[in-house]
Nucleic acid binder design. Structure first.
Ligand SMILES: [Mn+2]
Ligand SMILES: [Mn+2]
Ligand SMILES: [Zn+2]
Ligand SMILES: [Zn+2]
Lengths: 152, 152
DNA sequence: TGGTTAATGATAAGCATTATCATTAACCAC
DNA sequence: GTGGTTAATGATAATGCTTATCATTAACCA
C-alpha cells in the first residue's frame, strides 16, 4: 500500500538532493496523510507528534526544495500562509470552504483552454495560473454557520 | 475630468466613515493614478512624494476599511503583498507579467459560468474566486529577459 | 463653537518566512 | 567498512508585511 522508504530515497536522489532523514520523513508524510494540503506548520506539528526531532527551518527549506524539484506543488488560498501538496502530475484547481477550510479539487479542460486563449490574444506566454473558488461547502454545519454569520 | 474632493467626501461618508484628510487623499490617489493596482507601500510613497504627512499605519487601516466598504478590491498575485484597486463595479480577473509586473485585466463570461457550474455540482455556495494568469507579456524586453533566464 | 468621540501616527508586536552559522551526518573514494 | 569532504540540519536571529497599542489630534454634531 505504502511506498517503502527506499523509494522515497530514490525520488529524492533523482532530484539531485541527498536522501536525508528529514527529507524522507517529509515526503513520506505527504504520501501517507489523508489531508492532502499541508502548511509548513502542519508538517512540523505532524512530525513532532510522530516523535521526530526536526527543526522548523528544515521544513521550510525542504518544502521549497521539493517544490523546485516538482515533488510538491504550492498554493496560497489567501489564508496568509502557503500550503503544499504531493505533485502527482495531474494539474487541478481548488474549491475552498470559507467556514471549515475543506479543500476540494477540480479540473475543467474548457476553463484551461479559455485561459490559454485569453493569454494568446494578448501576446502573453502563459506560464502558470492560480484559480481558487471560495464558498460554503455542502456540510450542513457549514451552511448553518454561514447563515448565522449573515445575520450577525 | 477628476471628481472634486467633495465627491470623495460623499463616497466616504456614505460608507459610514468620517471624511478625514488621509482618507480623501488615499481615495483620490486611486481615482487619479495611472497604475491601477497599488500596494500599501505604493500608496505611502506616492503620498509622501506629493508632500503629504501620513502614517503607514493609517494607510493599512484605511485600505482595509475601503475594502470592507467596497470602494476598493484587494488581490494577492502571490507577490507576498496585497494590492488594491478602485472598485468600479465591473468584476474582472488578471494577467500578470512575471518579468516586469505589468497587470492586464480580462473578463470571460464563459469562465465565470463554468466556475458557477462547478461549485453548484459540488454543493458549494460560491462566494468569490481568484483567477490570475502568470506569464511573459508582449513587451520585447520581457521576452528577451525570459529567454535569457531560461538559459541561465 | 465647543465637547464628544473616532481617527491618526509613532512605535511595538505579531506572524510567516528566510538568513546565519556552528554542529552533524550523507555520500564517495579508498 | 572507514574516514574525509561537503552539504544538510537546527537553534536562533533577522526580515518583510501587517496589525495592535495608545497618547494626541481633528471631524462631526448639538
Ligand atoms: Mn490540490
Ligand atoms: Mn484589476
Ligand atoms: Zn465547510
Ligand atoms: Zn512584462
Amino acid at each position: 500500500m505504502h511506498k517503502p522508504a527506499s523509494d522515497n530515497a530514490q525520488d529524492i536522489h533523482s532530484s539531485g538532493l541527498k536522501a536525508t532523514w528529514p527529507r524522507i520523513r517529509i515526503l513520506r508524510l505527504f504520501q501517507q496523510t489523508t489531508q492532502r494540503h499541508l502548511s509548513a506548520e502542519d508538517v512540523y506539528r505532524s512530525l513532532l507528534a510522530d516523535g521526530e526531532e526536526i527543526g522548523l527551518a528544515t521544513i521550510y527549506r525542504v518544502l521549497t526544495q521539493f517544490e523546485q524539484a516538482r515533488l510538491l506543488t504550492r498554493h496560497y488560498f489567501e489564508s496568509g500562509k502557503a500550503v503544499y501538496e504531493l505533485n502527482e502530475g495531474q494539474h487541478h484547481d481548488h474549491l475552498v470552504c470559507m467556514i471549515c477550510g475543506r479543500v476540494e479539487e477540480f479540473f475543467d479542460p474548457e476553463i484551461e483552454r479559455l485561459q490559454q486563449q485569453i493569454a494568446e490574444r494578448r501576446g502573453f506566454e502563459l506560464r502558470e495560473h492560480a484559480l481558487s473558488l471560495y464558498g460554503v461547502c455542502s456540510n450542513p454545519a457549514c451552511q448553518a454557520k454561514a447563515w448565522a454569520e449573515s445575520r450577525g
